[in-house]
Amino acid sequence: MLLRRLIGLLLTLLAVSLLLFLVMNLLPGDPAAVMLGTSARPDTLAAMREAMGLDRPLPVRFVVWLGGVLTGDFGTSITYGTPVAELIRDRAAVTLPLAGLAILLSILIALPLGLVSAARRGRRADAVAGLFAQLGLALPNFWIGLLLVLVFASELHWLPSGGFPGWSAGLGPALSALVLPTVALALPQAAVLTRVTRAALLDTLAEDFVRTARAKGLTRREALLRHALPNAMVPILTILGLQFSFLVAGAVLVENVFDLPGLGRLVYQALLQRDAVVVQGTVLCFTALVVVVNFLVDLAYLRFDPRLRAAS
């Protein structure tokens, strides 16, 4: 079961990399022309294509690229002239903390809200949590970003409205540059998670073993925390896994709003410049991340739900 999933995972990545390579190299627009702009001439274009290694046939380039990727060498950016692996590493140092902080914040918001609204189902607290969830689902994250900038950066001047000073500028400035983007990214996630947590808790509360526990004299709250919550983790994790690819997509938009030099901006810029090597490497990493996270979620299932363990 696990092995099959693992092979499936690798095949998925192979399919994605082939697809990516084909798309990127068949896109209209010539990277050599991009670099030479409006003064390009046939002879300089030809020289540029040769310098970029674009004069070799497609299959050769694919094999060379894939071989490199397998050994950890993602090639050299044709615009920057630096190794793609380095570029990805530098940019991931912005995107991954951003995504991680957003997940953390969304869990910190959603678990308590979900618990409260399950515990006080149908009461006012439930309604308030429900309203939060509905709003969180409806607000575009980049708009939340704009509003946060309007209030906290433009009006109050508390936080930077965008840009990233780099981790070398110190933890303080770097983190404060990530505060608003994290909030913008986390709110919609928190909304989804709140709803799922509440539903999952109510589900498990209705199951026999919880009722048995209640019958043994546990209060509703105790039953909720001790029995329902651990069992509700399965659907919560599923959603976290599924939402991860949305989170990555959201990061692209949010990085754009806040002008953060993350993977999303890297891809966007590389795409405009037809820097195929960079786009291929970055998107492959994105996809690998999503696939691996989902795989880990599958593993976590086994851990949280003994019934599934027996089944496998």
Binding site: V16, S245, V248, G264, T287, V291
Partner: peptide, 8 residues
């Protein structure tokens, strides 16, 4: 399809 970030 699902693994490929939709925005990309």
């Amino acid at each position: 399809l699902f693994a490929f970030p939709p925005i990309l």
